[in-house]
C-alpha cells in the first residue's frame, strides 16, 4: 500500500450462494481523493461500497479479494429517511454518534452536534427544539445523515447514491455541501451513482461498472472525451443535454 493510499480494493469478488454479483473489482483511493463508481442498477456498485464498510446484506458473501484500509469509513445512504430512526429526534441522533465515537460528554456531544448541523446548513430552529425525521424534508434528513457520518471523523466518506431520492434542486445543494465539506475536512470519498453528470462533476476519477465488473477506469476527463468501452459510450450518450436556453438553469 502506497504511503498516501487510504483504501485499496484488490480483486474483490462478492456472491450470493452461487450467483456472482461482483467480480474482480480493484481500485485504490488516495488521501483526500474522490472516486466515482458509475453504472446501472444491479451493476454491483452499491454492494462494493457495502463491502468496504463491512455491511454486506444477509446471504451475500465475499468470495475473493482483499480490502485494505487504515482509516475509518462512514456511509451516506440513498434514502435519508430510511437511514434515520423514525422515533428519535435528529439532534439526539447526531449527538449520540459523537458521544460514542469521540467519547465526549453528553453535553459536549450535543454542542458539537449543533455545530456540525450549522456547518451543514440546517436551520437554527433545531437548536431550540429537536425534531423527528418525519418533520424534516428529505434534503434536511440527508444533511442529518451526512452529519452523522461526519461525526465519526471518517477518513473515507462512502456515498451510496445520496441524491437519488431527492428533488433535483435539492440534489445540487447536497452535492455542493459535500464538496465544500470535503475541501474543508479533507476526507477521501467513494461516490456511487448512476448519474454520470453528477459523478463527473464531483470526482476526478471514475470507474464504470457493468454486471459486477469494472469495464472502464480512468481520469474523468479522459474517460468523457475518449471512452473506450461501448457501455461507457452508451452512458455518455444517455446524458440529456439542456436545450439552448440562456439562463434556463435559474
Amino acid at each position: 500500500m502506497a504511503a498516501n493510499t487510504v483504501l485499496q480494493v484488490e480483486a474483490l469478488s462478492l456472491a450470493a450462494k452461487s450467483k456472482k454479483l461482483v467480480e474482480n473489482v480493484s481500485f485504490s483511493l488516495g488521501k483526500g481523493e474522490s472516486l466515482g463508481l458509475v453504472g446501472e442498477s444491479g451493476s454491483g456498485k452499491s454492494l462494493t461500497l457495502r463491502a468496504i464498510l463491512g455491511l454486506l446484506p444477509r446471504g451475500i458473501e465475499q468470495t475473493g479479494g482483499v480490502i485494505k484500509s487504515d482509516v475509518s469509513s462512514a456511509m451516506v445512504f440513498q434514502d435519508p429517511r430510511g437511514a434515520l430512526d423514525p422515533l428519535c429526534p435528529v439532534v439526539a441522533q447526531v449527538a449520540e454518534v459523537i458521544y460514542y465515537r469521540q467519547k465526549a460528554s453528553r453535553k459536549a456531544s450535543r454542542i458539537q452536534a449543533l455545530e456540525l448541523l450549522e456547518m451543514l446548513g440546517l436551520p437554527d430552529s433545531l437548536k431550540k427544539s429537536d425534531r423527528y425525521p418525519s418533520q424534516l424534508s428529505g434534503g434536511q434528513c440527508q444533511r442529518i445523515v451526512i452529519a452523522m457520518a461526519l461525526a465519526c471523523k471518517p477518513g473515507i466518506l462512502l456515498c451510496d447514491e445520496p441524491t437519488t431520492a431527492l428533488d433535483v434542486t435539492v440534489q445540487r445543494q447536497i452535492i455542493e455541501t459535500i464538496t465544500s465539506l470535503q475541501r474543508e475536512l479533507g476526507f477521501a470519498m467513494v461516490f456511487v451513482t448512476h448519474n454520470l453528470a453528477i459523478a463527473a462533476s464531483l470526482c476526478p476519477k471514475l470507474c464504470v461498472m457493468k454486471e459486477g465488473q469494472i469495464v472502464e477506469h480512468d481520469d474523468t476527463l479522459r474517460l468523457l472525451q475518449n471512452p473506450t468501452n461501448p457501455y461507457t459510450r452508451m452512458l455518455l450518450d444517455s446524458v440529456l443535454p439542456l436545450p439552448e436556453l440562456e439562463g434556463s438553469e435559474q
Partner: peptide, 27 residues
C-alpha cells in the same frame, strides 16, 4: 434489523445495547 437505520447505527459505532434500548425499543 433489516432497515437501513439500524445498519447505519451499527456502522456508526453505536453499541448493540444502546441500539436495542434507545432505538429498537421505542419502535
Amino acid at each position: 434489523r433489516e432497515q437501513e437505520w439500524v445498519a447505519s447505527a451499527q456502522t456508526l459505532g453505536l453499541p448493540g445495547v444502546r441500539i436495542i434500548l434507545r432505538h429498537l425499543l421505542p419502535n
